[in-house]
Design a protein around this nucleic acid. Structure first.
Lengths: 185, 185
DNA sequence: TCGATAGTACACTGATCTGTGAAGTCGGGA
DNA sequence: TCCCGACTTCACAGATCAGTGTACTATCGA
């Protein structure tokens, strides 16, 4: 579905999305104006508004875009991952942030957007899906109490991911992965 | 030291700091202008600039102010806390965010500030101090491998705290506290 | 060849942003 | 009495904010 959505996007829209993705992530959503995005994507502001309608809608598209990418990466990894496969989530987030040092785009967005913003729901859904998949994988790979363990692993993951943007490195993510591996063995 | 600093502040500066603390936390740092802060504190913009010099400096004062409050709360709790005392950190963060649902002010600030912003270092120092104290408490309260356990507890804490702002509740913080208690027993 | 779609160029609105300059008010301490 | 520090009032600068209106061009499929 998300693939089809992406196919429908015009060349201009794709350039805008690419620039927005880079700028929103690096400098923050509120801090980046639509003019800046238009200039960086080599497209006029008029085109940006013709394609997306408003800055808020562009923000939603940006988050959805990153969510789709994240999922694609997760699926690619999961295909031939060793057990316990839940650990691939740590790799997916490490790859998502690398090498900017700005941490998790979703947590960052949630931190600066008001809860009423339509993009906020995208973040919530993304994290909910991560939690669900984690739970499913842990259950499938055979664990005594998948619910409790999944929540535990999720917290380790998110704690590390939150600090990726503060440390500017993936070191803590590696530590968290090790601790999660211990839990899952 | 921070107490002395606070004594020096004039009435106007205190009102500004109170308003800034509320507004920056609720709506985000970039999203709130100095005019808004001036109006909400019942003080002119001129006074604001006379006291703090710039918005960036006010942001630093805001974060330092929250850090001082956080520490005061922590110390008040730790005095007669049952063992393992490391668990008080979970209560301190729950109280810090309550009842706004906006989560951790420090993580939120780090998410929207550029790493070059002087306020970013305040966040980093705050989290480093939390980590250090956690480690010290866990060591004092007698644990086999304080370093590994402290890091584990810290990750649980931060994962929960990061999602406090997304869930809009302290439920996950309570779960994390329970898991940490298990670890420390 | 026609018409739709995608995009450019560019001026413009009205609001808001951080920050400053200059002059004046007021109370408390030396 | 005189002065200083805290604060007000208000106008202003120059930039940037999101978003719009209008007119034009290039491409492509039916």
């Amino acid at each position: 579905m998300s693939e089809e959505n992406r196919q429908k996007l015009t060349v201009g829209a794709l350039k805008i999305l690419a620039a927005a993705s880079e700028l929103f992530y690096q400098r923050g959503i509120t801090a980046v104006g639509v003019d800046t995005i238009a200039v960086h994507s080599g497209v006029t502001k008029r085109t940006l508004y013709d394609r997306f309608g408003s800055k808020d809608a562009l923000v939603v598209a940006y988050l959805q875009h990153r969510h789709d990418d994240w999922w694609a990466r997760w699926h690619a990894r999961i295909a031939d991952a060793p057990r316990p496969r839940a650990l691939t989530a740590f790799d997916s987030y490490a790859e998502d942030a690398h090498p900017s040092g700005r941490g998790c785009a979703f947590l960052n967005a949630a931190a600066e957007l008001p809860p009423s913003h339509p993009g906020f729901a995208v973040v919530r859904d993304h994290k909910q899906e991560v939690r669900d998949r984690l739970h499913a994988l842990i259950a499938e790979d055979g664990n005594g109490a998948p619910s409790a363990v999944a929540e535990h692993v999720f917290l380790l993951l998110e704690g590390a991911v939150a600090h990726q943007g503060i440390d500017g490195s993936g070191a803590r993510l590696a530590t968290a992965r090790r601790l999660a591996a211990q839990l899952l063995s």
